[in-house]
């Protein structure tokens, strides 16, 4: 019935060519969408599969229960010697040291910069500074790495020279070429664009009428910023912090270059340390044989790192969502 009716009214029919085009588009976008899941699934499969293999050789109790990480060198492995010690805590400590240190540097500076850009900077200054910040985000990680090694490291070593003030602060120690401090400083700079950019967006999204209400009651600019603007933008600011920290945890190249290769169970920032990412960079880049616990430990460490950043990203999403809700309710 319907078919027949359509046949009589030609102009109501979709042209066959258009219908095929629609079908082709549908298939194209479906494939693109599916491929994301395929790639993700494959990565997870490789990560989890090799990690399981690792835990067959090394007990999970040792992995999460020991504070000694000393993997065998290539020669030792090929001669069939002991694979080493696989307590992951020194790597986690190294990662946390760099992350927390970078956060201590990056969060306040990033937030202060965001407040300046959003609230205080004249539009001409902002239109100049914002692209500069985005440029900072565009500098390759490896460039930051050798910047840390050739610029920051000598300064850190000078400042912690025997007898200097910082020498005593850090427990009568001098930094060597490699130190967690190098990585902390450089990662602290690397997270600035994320924190500044997202916090600034959150602050600028605070409705103008809230600022006016505060000014109208005789509040100064700073009182308004402190009491109304920042609290209203808080969930967005927190989200930027979490994303910045996630970036710091996952940062590999600069950290691997600046922090050293010594997996040490320490929280002293001028010690040479190794982060989780640093370990992966070191051993995947070398000639480690592609079997045995040293090789599979790369995946176990990778999986641990993945779970840590995943948790942070989920946390950030919750904050971003809440922030949108608050914003939606306000405007």
């Amino acid at each position: 019935m319907v078919q027949a009716a359509r046949a009589t009214v030609g102009e109501w029919q979709v042209a066959t060519r258009a219908r095929y085009g629609d079908l082709a588009a549908r298939i194209l976008f479906l494939t693109a969408g599916l491929s994301v899941f395929l790639v993700l699934g494959f990565i997870l499969y490789v990560l989890v599969g090799n990690s399981l293999q690792f835990f067959r050789d090394v007990s999970i109790l040792e992995f999460f229960g020991s504070t000694k990480w000393q993997t065998a060198g290539t020669v030792q492995i090929s001669e069939g010697g002991d694979a080493g010690d696989f307590g992951v805590w020194p790597l986690i400590a190294g990662t946390m040291l760099v992350t927390v240190g970078a956060a201590v540097i990056g969060l306040p500076i990033g937030l202060a910069t965001a407040i300046y850009l959003a609230e205080y900077a004249p539009s001409r200054v902002r239109s100049f500074l914002k692209p500069v910040l985005e440029l900072l985000a565009g500098i390759p990680s490896i460039v930051f790495g050798f910047f840390a090694l050739f610029v920051i490291s000598p300064i850190v070593r000078d400042l912690t020279d025997e007898g200097s003030f910082l020498y005593y602060v850090f427990g009568q120690k001098s930094a060597t070429i490699f130190s967690a401090m190098n990585a902390i400083i450089v990662v602290g700079v690397m997270v600035l664009p994320i924190i500044t950019s997202l916090s600034e967006d959150a602050i600028r999204a605070v409705p103008k009428h809230l600022r006016e209400a505060s000014f109208g009651l005789g509040a100064t600019k700073w009182e308004t910023t402190k009491n109304v603007v920042v609290p209203s933008a808080l969930s967005g600011i927190v989200a930027s912090f979490v994303l910045g920290v996630a970036r710091a945890i996952g940062e590999s190249m600069a950290v691997a270059m600046a922090a050293g290769t010594q997996a040490a169970w320490t929280f002293n920032p001028i010690d040479s340390i190794q982060t989780m990412t640093g370990f992966i960079v070191q051993r995947t880049g070398g000639d480690t044989p592609q079997q045995g616990p040293v090789f599979t430990s790369l995946f176990a460490v990778g999986l641990t790192l993945f779970l840590m950043t995943l948790a942070l990203n989920l946390l950030a999403q919750r904050f971003v969502k809440r922030y949108r809700e608050v914003e939606g309710a306000d405007t």
């Binding site: 006016e212 209400a213 109208g216 009651l217 005789g218």
Partner: peptide, 16 residues
């Protein structure tokens, strides 16, 4: 001055 001259706006704008 704004302490002595209060203002009420077009859209209710209580602080969150």
């Amino acid at each position: 001055l704004r302490r002595h001259v209060g203002m009420v706006f077009q859209k209710p704008n209580p602080f969150p």
